[in-house]
């Protein structure tokens, strides 16, 4: 049925094109306009450029203002406030250039459309102008880059000592989360140790791994630095926490990192948005296969006190599954049991 309809549609379209074409060729031959340099269409096209400018201009402003709250994601990290600011400064600068150049680009066709009586101005060059419009964009861009560079340097600087260390590991098609535990140091891992019970491939013979624990949700404290240690087990993934303005690829064989300070708890954000269902989310932004669009993880930002309480309630990998400690040296085992 669909096929038939499409075929009819295409046929109709083709015959319309054909008829329009024939009719207007005949008309233009009759009028002799195929011999003129510029026909009446020249004027129509010139006017259409102005109409296009007005139409799309109005549409753009209307939609940008109307939808502002929809596309402007709320921000919930310290550096995110800064990068957002850079974004909107850049938007202002480029917006002005965008408008000016487009007004000129579409007004000129109207203003300077062909007239047989007029001759175009022979104006091949002007070095002064060229220099001006090389230097001015250069200076403006330099300003933008330098502010961007300062923000970038801060964001990518080493994490503060006391940052809460959390490992996020991507695999097809989910994220697994490991907390560093009381010592705030993640234990070693080796991908060859990966198994159904030990999805991170944690090396439990490393003392640092004994207090490491898993969590289905990324719980983090508000106002304190958090360090994501990011890696992947199979192919590339990318950790994207849109409200935190955070993104970093997860690369097999090459651990990466990103640290930040969350500024609003989930509860606060729910209130602010008037949406009791709201959650901070992590998505994957590096194509990784069939389930790429489903790698969701929730981030829960809580008050520092609530965070400490939550931490103390968590059970380590080994407590959850004592079999993991099998075959370990006895002193390590002892340590694990005391925990």
């Amino acid at each position: 049925m669909y096929g038939f309809l499409i075929a009819v549609g295409v046929l109709l379209l083709l015959s319309i094109i054909w008829m329009v074409y024939r009719i207007q060729t005949l008309v233009s031959v009759v009028k002799g306009s195929d011999k003129k340099i510029a026909t009446g269409s020249n004027k129509i096209n010139a006017i259409l450029f102005v109409l296009f400018l007005l139409g799309t201009g109005i549409l753009m402003f209307w939609y940008s203002i109307k939808e502002f709250d929809n596309y402007q994601l709320p921000v919930a990290s310290e550096h995110g406030v800064i990068t957002d600011q850079l974004f909107w400064i850049t938007m202002a600068v480029t917006g002005v250039v965008f408008l000016i150049t487009h007004v000129l680009l579409f007004i000129f066709p109207y203003k300077y459309q062909y007239k047989e009586s007029r001759k175009a101005t022979f104006y091949p060059d002007n070095n002064k102008l060229e220099i001006i419009w090389t230097v001015v964009p250069g200076v403006v861009l330099a300003g933008l880059v330098i502010s961007g560079w300062m923000a970038w340097s801060d964001i990518t600087a080493p994490a503060p000592e006391k940052a809460h260390v959390i490992e996020i590991m991507g695999y097809q098609f989910a994220w697994d989360v490991r907390y560093a535990g009381k010592d705030n140091v993640l234990g070693d891992y080796d991908y060859r140790l990966t198994s159904a019970q030990n999805s991170h491939g944690v090396d439990f013979s490393d003392k640092n791994s004994i207090d490491d624990f898993p969590s289905p949700v990324v719980v983090i404290p508000k106002g304190e630095p958090v360090l994501f240690k990011i890696r992947a087990r199979d192919v590339l993934h990318s950790v994207f926490a849109p409200h935190m303005r955070l993104k970093m690829d997860a690369v097999p064989g090459m651990p990466t990192r990103f640290w930040f300070v969350p500024t609003k708890t989930t509860a606060e954000m729910r209130e602010e948005l008037g949406n009791p269902e709201f959650n901070y989310e992590i998505a994957c932004t590096e194509i990784c296969g069939r389930g790429h669009n489903g790698m969701r993880k929730v981030i829960e930002v809580v008050e520092p006190a609530a965070y400490q309480k939550w931490l103390s309630e968590q059970k380590s990998f080994i407590q959850n599954n004592p079999a993991l400690a099998k075959g370990l040296e006895s002193d390590v085992k002892e340590l694990a049991e005391i925990q």
Binding site: N42, F108, R118, Y123, P137
Partner: peptide
């Protein structure tokens, strides 16, 4: 690299300026 790109745009605009445009 954005600078030479910008220069090209300005040059196109100036070419249109006071031309005798045939569409």
């Amino acid at each position: 690299i954005a600078v030479p790109s910008a220069v090209k745009v300005f040059n196109y605009l100036t070419t249109l300026w006071r031309g005798n445009l045939i569409f």
